[in-house]
Design a protein around this nucleic acid. Structure first.
Length: 465
RNA sequence: GCUCCCUUCGUCUAGUGGCCUAGGACAUUGCCCUCUCAAGGCAAGUACACGAGUUCGAAUCUCGUAGGGAGCGCCA
């Protein structure tokens, strides 16, 4: 039997972290076992589903690189099929028409709640023989009255439900449209899904779905209910901490591989290993290693992982996103070769590509001003004189490489009886305007001889005035 | 309220009866390295929710308690 998994978001909002984690586990499991990953859009709620949300989900999935083999399938395009299954269930007596009004149901529920019972449908239309002519009705699934149904969940182990606890759920509304739990069952059956991997907020739906599958004489799939992801405060994920569109992480300068690495470690681990490439996740992931408890989202660890991935990536990999972030800051960079050098120089001092871009603007724009506090600390007349002299030497330096620059400055410092630090900081101020940058030799090398010398000269002039 | 699920450092986790005076990672603090900032290295503090039981021995098994979460819609 080949593995078939599915990710089935409902397009009522953007694709967020929780959704991506679910998708990731489905995708990983399918890929790991050479199976098929199906994407299905659950858009039966026409009120809340939007085309924009669908596009967002597709874009998000694409960005993180979770590619599907089949789909996307849309439930709204399968209504005929649902209708057919509905009819056959009615015919076979595994479903029945219920004529109870919403008011009647509401009364029933309040009465039950008042008695301290779980609100549920009491099955009063279950054995109805006469149908009120022309009255509106819903269709309910005829759930078994007694016995037990056990969900053999891969992450939770066996979970037992008494059928008596389950009521007859509505599978078609009075307007004839099918409801979620029913569509899921028909879809999973039709799409021959072998492993249903989803959030554990669905665990309570599972026994009903299994009962329907049994009624349809279709063997239930394997279930794996994933623990939830909580916000950083331990409460439900909200916009404050993570429940934003996954695409926002792209815009904040995160690498998709870092995000996936972070997410895969929420509820899953492989010994003490923290950093996983996409390839390693694929080789090591198994749903049976997933743990049961919910986990809190931690942005700091995500940021750390992001930096780790930035540092490990081929510099060329970072060039495109870096360009994009620079563009956002009004800088157009065209030399990929130079950008690769910038990545090399900056990657251990930026947690995100956005931050890297912000730290790198000076390579493209001469400083408009100099950090006053730093100038006071590092610059005086003597230093300016030294810089002018050093500048003269650097003007004849060839090749203009980091090594050569380092040697030249070092030799000059020794000759003048100065420490390298005494000289490096003022040079840094002159060329960047601030007190922080990559090593001064690399910084000057990337800047280019002409630009570096021009900036030093300009600074000396400014500081002499 | 009822049903179901969950419970190891602040956070993510290792751990499946003796290797645990509980390991790793993020974060925090200190030190080292050092031209700045980082990165890196080293070190420190911090956890088995609680209570019974089983056992020679329990973070690991059982039961109870507490706390947290989910579900109980003509939403998905």
């Amino acid at each position: 039997m080949t593995v078939r998994t599915r990710f089935a978001p409902s397009p009522t909002g953007y694709l967020h972290i929780g959704g991506v984690r679910t998708a990731l586990f489905c995708w990983l499991y399918a890929r790991r076992f050479k199976g098929t990953f199906v994407l299905r859009i659950e858009d039966t709620d026409r009120e809340r589903s939007t085309g924009e949300a669908i596009q967002q989900i597709l874009d998000g999935m694409k960005w993180v690189g979770l590619d599907h083999d089949e789909g996307p399938f849309y439930q709204t395009q399968r209504f005929d099929r649902y209708k057919a299954v509905l009819e056959s269930m009615l015919d076979q007596g595994t479903a029945y028409r219920c004529y109870c009004s919403k008011d009647e149901l509401e009364q029933m529920r309040t009465a039950q709640t008042a008695r301290g019972e779980k609100p549920r449908y009491d099955g009063r239309c279950r054995n109805r023989t006469s149908a009120p002519a022309g009255a509106p009705f819903v269709v309910r699934f005829k759930n078994p009255l007694d016995g037990e149904i056990v969900v053999e969940d891969v992450v939770h182990g066996p979970v037992v439900f008494k059928n008596a606890e389950l009521d007859d759920l509505i599978i078609a509304r009075s307007d004839g449209t099918p409801t979620y739990n029913f569509c899921v069952v028909v879809d999973d059956m039709d799409m021959r899904i072998t492993h249903v991997i989803r959030g554990d907020d669905h665990l309570n739906n599972t026994p009903r779905q299994m009962n329907m599958l049994i009624a349809l004489q279709s063997p239930p799939p394997v279930y794996a209910h994933l623990p939830m992801i909580l916000g950083s405060d331990g409460a439900k994920l909200s916009k404050r901490h993570g429940a934003v569109s996954v695409l926002q992480y792209r815009d904040e300068g995160f690498l998709p591989e870092a995000l996936l690495n972070y997410l895969v470690r929420l509820g899953w681990s492989h010994g003490d290993q923290e950093i996983f490439s996409r390839q390693q996740m694929l080789e090591l992931f198994d749903i049976v290693d997933v743990n049961k408890s919910a986990s809190a989202f931690n942005g700091e660890k995500l940021a750390w992982l992001n930096q780790q991935h930035i540092m490990r990536a081929q510099p060329a990999r970072i060039v495109e996103p870096l360009k994009w972030h620079l563009q956002q800051l009004g800088v157009t960079a065209d030399s990929d070769a130079q950008l690769e050098l910038i990545v090399l120089a900056q990657r251990e001092r930026a947690k995100t590509i956005k931050e890297m871009a912000a730290n790198s603007v000076f390579f493209f724009k001469a400083p408009a001003a100099y950090d006053e506090k730093a100038v006071r600390k590092h610059v005086n007349a003597e230093i300016v004189a030294l810089l002018r002299e050093l500048s003269g030497r650097l003007s004849t330096l060839t090749p203009w490489s980091a090594e050569a620059i380092h040697e030249s400055i070092n030799a000059f410092a020794v000759q003048m009886g100065q420490s390298l630090g005494k000289l490096a900081q003022p040079i840094r101020l002159a060329v960047t305007g601030g007190a922080v940058s990559p090593p001064i030799d690399a910084t000057l090398a990337i800047l280019g001889q002409q630009q570096a010398l021009a900036r030093i000269a300009a600074a000396c002039d400014a500081w002499s005035a």
